[in-house]
């Protein structure tokens, strides 16, 4: 394993310390190290709290700031945070208007955030609602199983709901909005290499020099199938046609196209993928109104990318364009 670290067991806290020092104008790291919070809270605003396993940087701490999250709770690498982190975060950023948890659909995250919500309302009387994101098309949706994973689309939910919270929307309406954005969002990822969890010290999976993994998750979970490496255009076609099919009637709305790198994929390839995805979507008559290209929801050092499409209703488009000032996303301020 080759990484810039001192010791796997302290890597997360050292990285967080670096992050907080680098962005001291936007965020503060709680003295306990349990959460990162927005430096200046806005009184009377619903507090948005997210979190999850680390290793997906800049998600979530990179999205703490004006117009997006109020706090992010980083778990160990690929391990959801523990309830005490979210409880402390609620105590740290709730200004009375209640808290909305934005949770990616993994049982670990869901259970830990559930427990935190229970504890926060029992202990502190906080009002907590949740939005669970599950945009990953690679997994079949079902109420009898874990269902779809929350992946890069989570960023879209955080941005749009964050803008609405900043504008003063109340807790219930924010939850409804978050669910609506999530329902309008689909993602699909492919990997060229595995990632290596620092504490594990070796790659999560082996993959041949001419192979790729289709439908991979953001933890190096094996995907839907293993296949031969194909061209960017072929990948884009397979992904985008699937997404458009799943979006159904929503495909006639203007869409946001997010091409997301998994951590080890250079920007040159991501823009090439953007180009390939755009061609397919335009051929299908989809109107790409907004886009974002970069490594935003990553899997440590995995080479790969995902494509996310959100069908933007009118309010969502306006909220997407709203000012945001975080470490990883900045617009209009």
């Amino acid at each position: 394993m080759k990484k810039f670290i001192n010791d796997p067991s302290t890597a997360l806290q050292e990285s967080l310390a670096g992050f907080a020092a680098a962005h001291a104008d936007i965020v503060t790291l709680a003295p306990s190290g349990k959460f990162v919070r927005r430096k200046e809270l806005k009184q009377g605003k619903v507090a948005l709290i997210s979190g999850g396993g680390s290793g997906h940087e800049p998600l979530h701490a990179g999205f703490v700031g004006h117009g997006m999250l109020d706090a992010a709770c980083p778990g160990e690498v690929f391990t959801s945070p523990t309830p005490d982190q979210m409880v402390e975060a609620v105590q740290g950023v709730d200004t009375g208007a209640g808290c909305l948890f934005i949770v990616k659909n993994y049982e670990g995250d869901v259970m830990n955030f559930d427990m935190a919500a229970e504890m926060a309302s029992e202990m502190a009387g906080a009002r907590v609602l949740q939005v669970v994101t599950n945009d990953d098309m690679a997994v079949e949706d079902s109420t009898f199983t874990t269902g779809r994973r929350g992946v890069a689309g989570t960023l879209v939910v955080e941005k749009i709901v964050g803008a609405a919270a900043e504008a003063g929307m109340d807790l219930e309406t924010l939850q409804e909005l978050g669910k609506r954005v999530n329902a309008n969002t689909r993602s699909f990822g492919v990997a060229l290499t595995s990632c290596t969890v620092p504490a594990a010290g070796k790659p999560t999976f082996d993959i041949g020099e001419d192979e790729m993994e289709f439908g991979v998750g953001i933890h190096g979970e094996p995907g839907r199938r293993r296949g031969k490496l194909i061209s960017a255009d072929e990948i884009a076609e397979e992904i985008c046609e699937g997404i458009v099919r799943e979006l159904g009637a929503a495909r006639s709305k203007p869409v946001l196209l997010l091409v997301n790198g998994f951590g080890a994929t250079p920007l040159m390839e991501l823009y090439l993928m953007h180009n390939s995805a755009r061609k397919v979507l335009e051929k299908q008559g989809v109107n790409i109104a907004r886009s974002l290209t970069g490594s935003f929801v990553t899997s440590l050092d995995m080479a790969g990318c995902s494509v996310t499409v959100t069908a933007l209703e009118e309010d969502m488009l306006t909220l997407w364009d709203a000012q945001v000032h975080t470490a990883a996303l900045r617009m209009g301020m």
Binding site: P83, D84, Y106, G108, M111, D114
Partner: peptide, 12 residues
Amino acid sequence: LVMSVGGASGPL
């Protein structure tokens, strides 16, 4: 365990 493990196994 709940407060230190995280993931699915922590709460369970």
